[in-house]
């Protein structure tokens, strides 16, 4: 597999990852505690797990639909970027419990978070965190987010 180099400095894309991780975990830290340690761990881990499994399934050959980071290989910053997913999972479940979502509002809530996730991915692409390949587009990520977010509630 040929290595594609998009960047070779510690710059915007790395700072974007660090910024999102710091801000999102700060939000998790500052919010009042609603969950037990096990539930908190679960809420944080589920985002990371889904992110890792999907990224390593469709982001690597034979699909190879996108790259993350400065080049097409797997680097330490790519591993660190998975921590971006953890707070999103936590905040999603936190908001669901806190706002006492029910029935049709659950659908709206899931759609909202899918849009938020796609929006964050768009920002990440602009910052150079992700690089689409082989015709992949942001629109393809939206149903994936819908599926993953819905699964979290199950």
């Amino acid at each position: 597999m040929k290595i594609i180099v998009y960047d070779n400095h510690f710059n915007g894309n790395e700072w974007f990852v660090i910024g999102i991780v710091v801000l999102a975990f700060a939000a998790v830290w500052l919010l009042p505690r609603r969950f037990s340690p096990a539930q908190t761990t679960f809420n944080l881990l589920i985002g990371i797990t889904f992110g890792v499994v999907f990224d390593h399934s469709i982001g690597t050959p034979p699909f190879d639909l996108y790259d993350a980071g400065d080049n097409s290989t797997y680097e330490l910053i790519d591993l660190f970027s998975y921590f971006m997913y953890a707070p999103f999972g936590y905040l999603f479940i936190y908001g669901y419990e806190r706002l006492r979502m029910f029935e049709i509002m659950t659908v709206v809530y899931i759609l909202f978070w899918a849009v938020m996730s796609a929006g964050t991915e768009w920002l990440a692409v602009q910052a150079g965190v992700f690089h689409y390949k082989h015709g992949y587009q942001l629109a393809y990520s939206f149903p994936i987010y819908l599926f993953l977010i819905s699964n979290r509630l199950e």
């Binding site: 589920i46 990371i48 890792v52 499994v53 390593h56 690597t60 050959p61 290989t73 797997y74």
Partner: peptide, 17 residues
């Protein structure tokens, strides 16, 4: 979840890195 994360990363590092 923690097993899945490690096992997936292990495969990627051994094959592509």
């Amino acid at each position: 979840m923690v097993i899945e994360v490690i096992v997936t990363n292990k495969l990627t590092v051994l094959t592509y890195n």
